[in-house]
């Protein structure tokens, strides 16, 4: 019935991999249904037998927010750009939680899907990509919570809140730029899985999550942007709260760094992926 076969059958050529192959993102696009189902599986399985289910998406940043509010907001009196500290911290913790969860699972994703990698062909990039996408619904749910919290503090969401999907994509970009490297490296060197949680913990303090970027002296601000997450967190906060000047410089530098990392990571991934089934 479906006239699918009208097209001439495609020819698959199997040859030894040579050096830096083309990225072949078209193949990934052809497998978009697979990416969707893998992400959907991750979401579904994550909360399958958890009694409070998706509430975990909110609980994790919420509890961290309480801890930081008590220790940094109240006791250490860390400034928060004139925003009530709990809202300030929570708005930073949302993209951060996304980043840390997504990067953590994406790093492990290839190894934990070794049965797929060694038994079926598809672009291997589908696996970490699905892991990264699978945390976006959590980010969305937690953002809903943030908006309620802002209303409770008498803060109206800025008009730029409608750009939320763009900020989510920006967070996705930052997480991917790191994850394409880490997931591929983790296949050959399992040291990565031990280093990553530690790395992410340190990274939190190099990112303006629980303190404002304005705390960083102006001349270092651009340098600060070399951390792809700096722009994401500041951008997200500005987008929702609309306070102060939009952090264009920081966002620009961060996005550029993330893009360079991502493209390099994609080429690296492409170069090593044909060996995954042998070493995994």
């Amino acid at each position: 019935m479906a006239p699918e076969r009208a097209v001439a059958p495609s020819v698959v050529v199997v040859t030894p991999p040579r050096g830096w192959a083309a990225l072949n993102l078209r193949d990934l696009w052809a497998h978009r249904d697979l990416v969707y189902f893998l992400a959907w599986r991750d979401v579904k399985v994550r909360y399958a037998q958890a009694s409070i289910g998706v509430a975990w998406a909110v609980l994790q940043p919420l509890l961290m927010m309480v801890v930081f509010t008590v220790f940094l907001g109240r006791l250490a009196k860390v400034p928060s750009d004139g925003i009530p500290y709990p809202v300030f911290a929570f708005s930073g913790l949302l993209p951060w939680t996304y980043f840390s969860n997504a990067t953590g699972t994406a790093t492990e994703s290839l190894v934990s899907s070794s049965n797929l990698v060694s038994k079926v062909y598809f672009p291997r990039l589908a696996i970490p990509l699905a892991a990264l996408l699978s945390w976006l619904p959590d980010l969305l749910v937690a953002t809903g919570m943030l908006i309620m919290m802002m209303l409770a503090y008498g803060l109206m969401p800025a008009w730029t809140t409608v750009l939320l999907p763009v900020f989510a994509l920006y967070a996705l970009l930052a997480a991917s730029s790191v994850s394409v490297w880490l997931s591929a490296l983790n296949v050959a060197y399992r040291d990565v899985r031990y280093a990553v949680p530690f790395l992410i913990q340190l990274w939190l303090f190099a990112t303006p999550v629980v303190y404002p970027a304005s705390l960083v002296p102006g001349r270092f601000r651009a340098l600060f942007g070399l951390n792809p997450m700096a722009g994401v967190v500041e951008g997200f906060r500005w987008g929702l709260l609309g306070r102060g000047h939009p952090p264009w410089a920081l966002m620009g530098v961060s996005a550029a760094v993330a893009l360079v990392l991502l493209v390099g990571g994609l080429y690296h991934f492409r170069r090593v992926e044909h060996g995954f089934a042998d070493v995994i």
Binding site: V12, V14, T15, P16, P17, N115, K119, Y121, H274
Partner: peptide, 25 residues
């Protein structure tokens, strides 16, 4: 296409389905 050859060439004309294990995924 699960592993890559070190040398040689194979051409497959058409859509390839592989069933190397029951219950993959």
């Amino acid at each position: 296409r699960i592993t890559a050859p070190t040398e040689g060439r194979a051409e497959l004309r058409g859509r390839v389905g592989s069933l190397l294990e029951v219950g993959t995924g």
